[in-house]
């Protein structure tokens, strides 16, 4: 028991340090990488908390895929976040401290850590453990509950993931060119190239021109690819 307590305290300390570093840092690259570190450390803690399936998922999804996605989005957006003036940080700090104190007040009503007879661990969770061996005959209770007892739930989750993927495809396009082609029914352009605010910045030289035909857009996309790719390979 003593070893796991030390392990737990070590993981907690690392999580707190990483979270505070995320607050303090301004370089987005460092922030995104630290988010990956945070996910990885919490995955390690999940193993210590007996949630092996969750740890597996968190390590693959939180530390792997979401970091890659954030890096890709950062490549398309910005590198540095501007400093926030001190006067504008007091309000959020007060709200957060107040909410945190309210939650600390509520900790007194929580079941003791590791209590096998707490309400959360008593009824339905225990039931699943008992019945999986009889009804489904597979050792991993988490899979049994996920796919069978709560299959309807998981169906909903799969649909949510599908819908989210669809949303990204609508926003960016599977080939990365959603929103770049302008509709021109009867020779009249119905949408503007960009919001008026963006006009102030000069467009980059190789960005698709306002009236460019689809074929031209594809050609610029093709032409610029190798440079962008080499960068990505190098930074990983």
């Amino acid at each position: 028991m003593a070893s796991t307590i030390l392990l737990d305290i070590g993981f907690m300390a690392m999580l707190v340090v990483v979270a505070f570093a995320i607050v303090r840092l301004r370089s987005l690259f460092a922030i995104v990488m630290l988010q990956g570190v945070y996910s990885l450390v919490s995955a390690a803690w999940f193993v210590s908390l007996d949630a092996v399936d969750v740890a597996f998922t968190e390590a693959a999804v939180g530390a792997g895929v979401s970091t890659v996605l954030m890096l890709a989005a950062m490549l398309l957006a910005d590198r540095e976040s501007r400093p926030v003036p001190l006067g504008r940080q007091i309000g959020p700090l007060l709200i957060v401290v107040f909410a945190g104190l309210a939650m600390f007040y509520a900790v007194g009503d929580m079941p003791a850590y590791g209590d096998a007879h707490s309400p959360a661990n008593s009824y339905v969770g225990h039931d699943y453990l008992d019945r999986t061996a009889e009804e489904i005959h597979i050792p991993n209770v988490v899979t049994a509950v996920l796919a069978s007892y709560r299959g309807y739930d998981t169906f909903g989750e799969a649909v949510v993931v599908f819908a989210a993927g669809l949303g990204v495809l609508l926003l960016l396009g599977l080939n990365g060119n959603a929103g770049r082609w302008r509709a021109k029914p009867n020779g009249v352009r119905v949408s503007k190239q960009a919001a008026p605010a963006a006009r102030k910045r000069p467009l980059p030289a190789d960005a698709p021109q306002p009236m460019s035909a689809p074929a031209a857009t594809i050609m610029t996309t093709r032409a610029k690819k190798p440079a962008a790719k080499k960068k990505k390979g190098g930074s990983s």
Binding site: V65, V68, L69, A72, A73, L75, L76, R79, A158, V161, F162, A164, G165, V168, L169, L171, L172, G173, L174, N175, G176, N177, P204, A207, T220, T221, K224, A227, A228, K231, K232
Partner: peptide, 24 residues
């Protein structure tokens, strides 16, 4: 579903052209 959605998201982000120069 999950593998395809993750790949679709990655393709979407990866093939979007960066708006700012690489020298940044």
């Amino acid at each position: 579903a999950v593998a395809s959605v993750m790949l679709a998201i990655f393709y979407a982000f990866g093939s979007r052209q960066p708006d700012l120069s690489e020298e940044d």
